[in-house]
Amino acid sequence: MAKILFFAEQRNGELRKTAAELATIAQRLAAKTGGTASAVLIGPDTHSCAEGLGQFGVKQATLITDSNLANYSTTAYALAVHKLIDKINPDLVLFTASATGRDLSPAVAGLAGNQVYSDCTQIDFVGSTLKVQRPVFAGKTLMNIAIDNKIAFVSLRPNSYPIKENACAISVDEFDPGLDEGAFTARVTEFKTSEATRPELTEADIIVSGGRGMGGPENFAGIEALADTLGAAVGASRAAVDAGWRPHSDQVGQTGKTVSPKLYIACGISGAIQHLAGMSSSKIIVAVNKDAEAPIFKAATYGIVGDLFAITPVLDAELKKIL
């Protein structure tokens, strides 16, 4: 009979895809244990988002609409969630391991004198014991953990759980955590929307990445064109980032982002162990590299040996024919 609370992320009144993932998993765990799943949303314009969660089988959502919470503040958001937890006493509190979730979840757990099991890729109840699996060393090994805490805080890796629609009626109530000015110790004063029109690396279904073999920043135009044909995100290896060809935020690997898209296309990437750690959980991996001995081919589902500058334009053209 697990009582589950999950933090549903939204931006500007739009539910994030990861919120649908969390809703699906929370609902599944609740159904398995004969318990309940409810969502918490923070922000002034969250009512329609909350209703959207009904699509995934969630029957209850609580809104915290304090206008001071329009902009994100770690401590204020954490206190707001903490006070709601005090009120409803959940057994399990779920977050997405997004940039915001990874910032918020340890603060919420910390306020309860607890810790968070972060970035889990598997979660299930076995009896009353919560079992999670989390990749460590960027996925070089996986850690299985059994949690018997009275309350557990868990964040789940984006893009690791399928979304399942299961429409139902959802009841929405509001909660006023009664925050004072002292709660807002750090606050967001400006949000600069990125100009990129491509999907987020961590949420993308398809990623096209370039490495040292790209030879220079100007050559990424070909990768970007291919990505746009596929509706994909653009990634880069550490070598390409350290050379200054791509921004740090594009880096895939142990000191960059860990990704698990359906399709990962690695162009001119040799496959250093720290890069493989960050992308090897991709469902299908395509490698294009002129060195037939490159380690990336060991990780790849499909490989083409040859000059990427000759291959990627043809790939782009072939894909355009069918997409």
Binding site: A99, E190, F191
Partner: peptide, 8 residues
């Protein structure tokens, strides 16, 4: 963060 950069 996803979708942009926050100044805090």
């Amino acid at each position: 963060v996803e979708g942009g950069a926050e100044t805090v």
